[in-house]
Design a protein around this nucleic acid. Structure first.
Lengths: 237, 237
DNA sequence: ATATTATAAGTGGTTGAACCACTGAACCAC
DNA sequence: GTGGTTCAGTGGTTCAACCACTTATAATAT
């Protein structure tokens, strides 16, 4: 979760709470095809207004959790068939920590996508974007913010909307869970080196190098994260 | 778009229409950071109730289009930074056809992801899933439905939630735009061969073969689609 | 008896008016 | 200046009622 030296200030709206409540209930206790109580019943059950329930349901519908059928009712969808990354994000945030299995999933697909994205970017990046890259590297933001900005720039320069939107997902996760990774100075240095090397590869328009450089840092990242996790498990077990 | 011999039957709900209307306006006429009119003003402008507007806004918020700030107003977000695949889907469906540039983006990332997914699946697939695969191949559905089912099974067997959810995006697009591709008998046969070959590779747990088989059919698909598009452009130009 | 057509009950979709809670700006007191 | 107060504008929530759609059932026609 995001670091907040003053502690959490829980200020959720009612319909947000209802979204979380219904989402948990759906995940833990219900099956695809099951019927949810009617809007009126849910409202009565939670002692809130029907309009508020409807806003929560609207969000769950957009996430692919449920299907609302006029005149019939509200039905659980099969999220393996209809779910999307936003739903996955919601599932992650319902817990306060990211499950190891999903983290592995995420790292694996990242290792496949991001290097190719960097290769594409090296071929399409503009002079202006190169200057932006330079500004990020020489700037004074935290390493986490720098790294996020670099990845976003890579995605933008790849000229592929799907890369951009998939990377947005990664970034939103890492913005909240990645601070831990960068608490280690070695990891900080490794990323700074990566940024500089990639900038050079971009300047030289060397797509092959951009690919291998990116792949390399991702493999390093994975090793460190797994080492961290196995350390936790060893201490606990 | 989905085939509909009776023509379009506009039966959208009010809030769905408002979502489409606002989305178009945001994409075409507004910039990130711009402020939308207040909920009350939008409701008055469109001559609908405020609750209906709020449901539309809720959806746009979930898609990453806008940010609603209590006491301040509604602001356009930078979709390149905050957008997700659902937003991209919406952008595609606002037109009646998929832009070539986005189609290229989609095919490219598909070529990178799906073979790896198939390789993973070959290592993790269960006996039960193999039987399901067999049932799909020997069944009598349309080739489009078969192909979608096969891809879904691959994703499920890959044991990676992100693969599953990203593939859901692809499938939802291809379900509506893919019928054109399978009108060609050659393309039908090519996919049937792919299904059978992949099933054999899965049975043999040969991940390398699963990878190359999948990659190969995707390259074929891309060639055919580009040939189709260039044919259109040549006839027009 | 069977097929067809009303009808009723239950569901989501929409409306209007009112009030609560938050934000920002202008103003005031110190 | 600094901090508190007030006020107008905004989103958040409530209430009560009605509209529109679906399904099952009862009434009717054949």
């Amino acid at each position: 979760m995001k670091k907040n030296t003053l502690g959490k200030i829980q200020k959720n709206t009612l319909h947000q709470q209802i979204v979380a409540l219904l989402a948990k209930r759906i995940i833990n206790q219900m099956q695809p095809g099951d019927k949810l109580p009617s809007e009126r019943d849910i409202a009565a059950l939670l002692d809130v207004n029907r309009a508020t329930v409807r806003e929560a349901l609207k969000k769950l519908e957009t996430l692919g959790f449920i299907e609302i059928r006029h005149g019939e009712g509200i039905f659980i969808k099969d999220y393996l068939t209809s779910g999307n990354l936003e739903l996955l994000k919601m599932m992650i945030y319902l817990n306060d920590t990211i499950p190891l299995s999903i983290l592995q999933n995420l790292l694996e697909i990242r290792r496949i996508i991001v290097p190719q994205m960097a290769a594409n970017a090296s071929e399409n990046i503009t002079r202006e974007e190169l200057q932006q890259f330079e500004a990020i590297v020489t700037g004074h933001d935290t390493i986490l913010e720098k790294d996020l900005a670099v990845h976003q720039l890579i995605a933008k320069a790849s000229r592929n909307l799907l890369y951009i939107f998939i990377l947005n997902f990664f970034n939103q996760i890492f913005r909240d869970f990645g601070y831990l990774y960068f608490e280690n100075p070695d990891n900080q240095k490794r990323s700074e080196i990566f940024h500089r090397e990639l900038l050079e590869a971009f300047k030289a328009k060397n797509s092959k190098k951009a690919y291998t450089i990116t792949r390399s840092v991702l493999e390093y990242t994975e090793k460190r994260i797994y080492a961290y996790y196995s350390q936790i498990y060893n201490n606990k077990g």
